[in-house]
Simulated scan of single mutants.
Amino acid sequence: MKTRLLCNKKVSEVGLGTWQLGSADWGNVTEEKAFEILTKFVKKGGNFIDTADVYGSGLSEKYIGKFIKETKADVLVATKLGRRTDKEYGWPENFTYDSMLDHVEDSLKRLGMSSIFLEQLHCVPKDELYRGVVFDHLRRLQDEGYIENWGASVENIEEALVCLDEEGISTLQVIFNIFRQNVADELFEKAAAKNVGIIVRVPLASGLLSGKFDESSTFGFYDHRNYNAEGEYFNVGETFSGLPFYDGVKLVDGLRGMLPQGNMAQWAIRWILDHKEVSVVIPGASKPSQVESNMAASALKPLPWETHEKLRKFYNDDVISLVRGEI
């Protein structure tokens, strides 16, 4: 597993997203299965895990914390705050210092840690980013030793650029994949110039870029690919990268002749890794075999420049007009 720098640490260039480990929004993942997924990830050389305090109302963090305690795994954990609704200052009132401290302390307890390697704002309202007070709170939490580094997970380029202007920011987490290419144009070079790491989420467009779905594919009642397909509950970009599902399936068919033969998911991740500004990509997994497949992308040779050009033309001509929501 190759490594890249993030917050001055060497991290596996393929990390692990753990939304699935919350046993919500993707279907059920038992504690046993979660441990199998985490074990496979570490054995394959992974050391960067991304989670959030709302993944299963803290269940993902609990599983990760228990796994680290029992296995003594040497991993770096990033979590996120800002979307909880279970306290008196729930969404969208989560942004006083006291509420953010409360949420950080809860994450520390679940993870079994004395400080958090990377704390990220979790797609908070744009108005809060422009107001800027949340960044003061993060700097204070860092000064007081609760967190080592901080960043922001954002929904679109405008939000990313607002965050990038803040002193002390270490990372930006963005949606970036073959179906969401534009973020590289306006953000990557600017982030690199400020030594801000790029964490890539939704790398497979909620599974579309695995190439395993067709028009007859269905998803469970509690799977966000069912209930949030039109952006009914949260940003539509988090589900299929904002593409209508059936359009996405047809677009995948068009990709098959552009990517090398073999595992489409691996080549989709390889395409992301070909961008040198990316620090780590964090595909999720609901079973160990998916972890192994995703991590194998690190060993693939970079795609030829001609392939990148074809994929960009494909995005410009066939994809971008279908993407819903701000990008």
Rank of each mutant, 00 (worst) to 15 (best):
G231T: 11
R180E: 15
E93C: 04
G211S: 12
V236R: 04
L209H: 05
T85N: 13
I269T: 06
G197Y: 01
L204P: 07
D247E: 15
A34T: 08
K126D: 08
N263W: 01
A193K: 15
A297R: 09
D102T: 11
G211A: 10
I37M: 08
V75K: 05
A152M: 04
L16T: 08
Y55L: 06
K80Q: 07
E144L: 14
E128C: 07
D317A: 10
S114A: 08
V42A: 13
R225N: 14
P288S: 13
E88K: 15
Y233I: 13
L129F: 02
S279H: 05
G151W: 02
F179I: 08
L108D: 04
F179C: 08
R131P: 00
V42W: 00
G211N: 11
R225Y: 04
D74P: 00
W305G: 14
Y233T: 15
D102N: 14
C123P: 00
L311W: 01
L118T: 07
E309V: 12
L255T: 11
P283M: 10
T171Q: 12
A299L: 11
V236P: 03
D136F: 02
A296N: 12
L161A: 05
A73S: 15
E326T: 13
F41S: 07
P125F: 09
Y222D: 14
D127L: 12
R4I: 02
G284P: 04
P302L: 04
L16H: 09
G257T: 10
A265Q: 09
K43G: 06
M1V: 13
D127I: 14
K40I: 00
G197W: 01
E32N: 11
R324V: 06
M295L: 05
L161I: 04
H224L: 13
I320Q: 14
I282E: 03
D136H: 09
S60I: 06
D165Q: 14
E13M: 13
S321E: 12
G237H: 07
G56E: 10
P260Q: 06
D185H: 06
V281P: 00
E61V: 07
D185N: 10
V200G: 07
K44P: 01
E148H: 06
H137E: 05
D143S: 14
E238M: 11
W271Q: 10
K69P: 00
Q266P: 05
P92F: 08
S293K: 09
L209Y: 09
R131E: 12
A184K: 07
C123M: 12
S115H: 12
K194E: 10
Y222G: 03
L300V: 08
D223K: 03
R256V: 02
N316G: 01
R270I: 03
W19R: 03
D86W: 13
Y146H: 15
I147P: 03
T96R: 07
L6D: 03
E31W: 01
S23M: 01
N316A: 11
R225K: 13
W267E: 00
G58I: 09
I269Q: 06
K62R: 14
S216F: 04
E238W: 07
E277H: 11
A184E: 12
A192H: 11
G132L: 06
E159I: 02
T96A: 08
G46K: 03
L300W: 03
G254A: 04
N8H: 13
S153R: 01
